[in-house]
């Protein structure tokens, strides 16, 4: 089974986010970058599938050289090989076009993405990729079982879940549930050593078009000072919720 896990290189979840002074981009100063958490669930699922069905797990990212430590980490966690599409991701259309072109040259059975990246939160790439490859797609996927060519998936819907079946190859956009938090693997020393000798290849872009153009970034407005209320005066809280905030 050939498994591809698409990875975004994103600021760590604990990062304080700020933007450069003209608002054109993220201020990367002092920001730690990690594997996008949704993709980490997907990577672990890929390793589980390899343990069960045999085959290889490849990881891929669209990014410049600064994304390579993230790919090396994925190799240290257990992926067999890594691919970097050499460029900068601009929007879902361009990113999915680049990844689709790579997949067409390399053929995979299972393509696992995270349901969104925690930086731009677009959530466009997985579905766009599936449509470009003309493959079935399951978003917010929390379970994936493969038996021969048959796939059974569960996706989260608003206030519930839905089971569906499809045939390989398939594209899924995963999240927690695909594997559990305690299944996630921390690279050990041996993993880190072997990751250095695993293949990491760099591919040039096909120069696809960007359709949604980022203009500028800003910070959300600051909250005003909190009003502390005595636990013995809950009537006051109810009054404020009613009269001041008008939410009840």
């Amino acid at each position: 089974m050939k498994i591809l896990v698409c990875i975004s290189h994103v600021p760590d979840t604990t990062s304080k986010i700020s933007f450069v002074s003209d608002g054109s981009s993220l201020d990367k100063n002092g920001v730690q970058f990690v594997i996008n958490p949704y993709d980490e669930f997907g990577l672990t699922k890929g390793l589980h599938l390899r343990e069960k069905h045999g085959g290889t797990v490849s990881v891929l990212t669209l990014g410049d050289e600064s994304a390579e430590p993230t790919l090396r980490k994925a190799l240290a966690i257990g992926a067999d090989e890594a691919h970097r599409l050499n460029g900068v991701p601009h929007d879902g259309a361009q990113t999915s076009e680049e990844i689709a072109a790579f997949i067409k040259r390399n053929e995979f059975d299972v393509i696992i993405c995270g349901q969104e990246s925690i930086d731009y939160n677009g959530g466009v790439v997985p579905g766009a990729l599936a449509a470009k490859l003309d493959l079935p797609f399951v978003n917010a996927c929390i379970s994936l079982d493969i038996d021969g060519n048959n796939v059974k998936t569960i996706r989260e819907i608003d206030g519930g879940k839905e089971t569906a079946k499809a045939k390989l190859p398939i594209v899924i956009a995963g999240k927690k549930g695909l594997v559990e938090e305690h299944d996630l693997r921390i690279p050990n020393m041996r993993g880190i050593m072997t990751a250095r000798s695993k293949p990491l290849s760099v591919h040039e872009l096909i120069e696809s078009k960007t359709l949604a153009q980022s203009v500028s970034f800003s910070k959300p407005p600051e909250k005003k000072e909190v009003k502390m209320i005595s636990p013995d005066n809950l009537e006051e809280l109810v009054r404020l919720l009613n009269e001041e905030s008008k939410v009840i």
Partner: peptide, 14 residues
């Protein structure tokens, strides 16, 4: 964007 830590202005090219 950035999980509500940022606001992005975006224009369409299509």
């Amino acid at each position: 964007a950035f999980s509500s830590k940022g606001i992005e202005q975006v224009s369409s090219n299509s």
